[in-house]
């Protein structure tokens, strides 16, 4: 095409690999670093916490230990790290369910079209038309307040978000000639969906994963706050905020600490998602 196209860059100026560009992006490196620390702490929680989260180690509501003790005399720092572990595991498991189901549904609907597409998109619309948190509360209340149910409910609730994004992306990729080329070479639909189409729509899926994690952390915190999630003595960030609320005037730090952790994780996930979106945006990558 003869529009104002600058002369093509010489072929030797190959783009830096994605991870290197990611490190150079301050939003990704800072938010990602913070999340990495949080994830490591959560993974190693039983090892690194100074006390068991169930044990009474000092008098209730005293300043002993780094962050003091709670109303049962348990170490707040240990409970905070364990609570973060609970929240992150629940959120991650839920997002994995959402991503796997959503990507599969979107791929199939987008690639095969026809009635599959109608079913998937309408189903997604129906699910999306309810406020997610309200639906989650109702569903967990019916299924029973258990962490496993929280994971399933959040996971299912976020399937449509993935399905819709993937569906739309597949529609644009499906008509590309390289998909026809794969079909002409004799590739079956499964192989084309997973090997040809999926890598080309990875970017929005990655971004959506990061943003969904942040939503999932919030929803889990909300459900646990209402007593529908983690059950005592297991701490989660939501239950700790709920417990801290009763002692707001005596010891506000009991509420503030878990709240700050929630805010930090959610913020970091959102910033990371924005950074990834910029990094993976094909219009920017083209330069």
């Amino acid at each position: 095409m003869a529009t104002a196209v600058p002369p093509a860059a010489p072929p030797e100026s190959r783009r830096a690999p994605a991870w290197r560009r990611a490190l150079r992006n301050p939003r990704i490196s800072i938010a990602g670093g913070l999340l990495l620390v949080a994830a490591l702490a959560a993974a190693l929680a039983p090892v690194i916490t100074p006390f068991d989260y169930r044990d009474q180690v000092a008098l209730p509501l005293t300043g002993s230990g780094l962050l003091g003790t709670d109303d049962f005399g348990r170490d707040v720092l240990s409970r905070l790290v364990m609570g973060m572990r609970t929240s992150l595991v629940v959120a991650a498991a839920a997002v994995v369910i959402a991503a796997v189901l959503g990507v599969l549904a979107g791929l199939v609907a987008g690639y095969l079209g026809g009635w599959t597409a109608v079913a998937v998109t309408r189903g997604a619309d129906i699910l999306l038309s309810f406020p997610a948190v309200v639906l989650a509360i109702a569903a967990v209340a019916i299924l029973g307040p258990e962490l496993r149910n929280v994971v399933i409910v959040i996971g299912v609730l976020y399937v449509p978000r993935f399905a819709r994004i993937v569906y739309v992306q597949v529609l644009t990729v499906r008509s590309a000639e390289y998909v026809d080329a794969a079909r002409v070479m004799g590739a079956g639909p499964m192989r084309i969906m997973l090997r040809t189409v999926l890598p080309n729509i990875a970017a929005p899926i990655i971004v959506q994963t990061s943003l969904s994690l942040s939503f999932a952390v919030q929803v889990e915190a909300g459900l646990s706050f209402l007593g529908l999630g983690a059950q005592p003595p297991l701490p989660s960030l939501g239950t700790m905020v709920a417990a801290g609320r009763d002692f707001l005037e005596v010891q506000p730090s009991l509420l503030i600490h878990p709240a700050v952790v929630i805010i930090a994780i959610v913020l970091a996930l959102n910033v990371l998602g924005d950074g990834l979106r910029d990094l993976l945006d094909p219009r920017r990558a083209a330069r």
Partner: peptide, 9 residues
């Protein structure tokens, strides 16, 4: 179109 008949990834 050689630009679109090869998988960019």
């Amino acid at each position: 179109d050689p630009a679109s008949s090869l998988n960019p990834r």
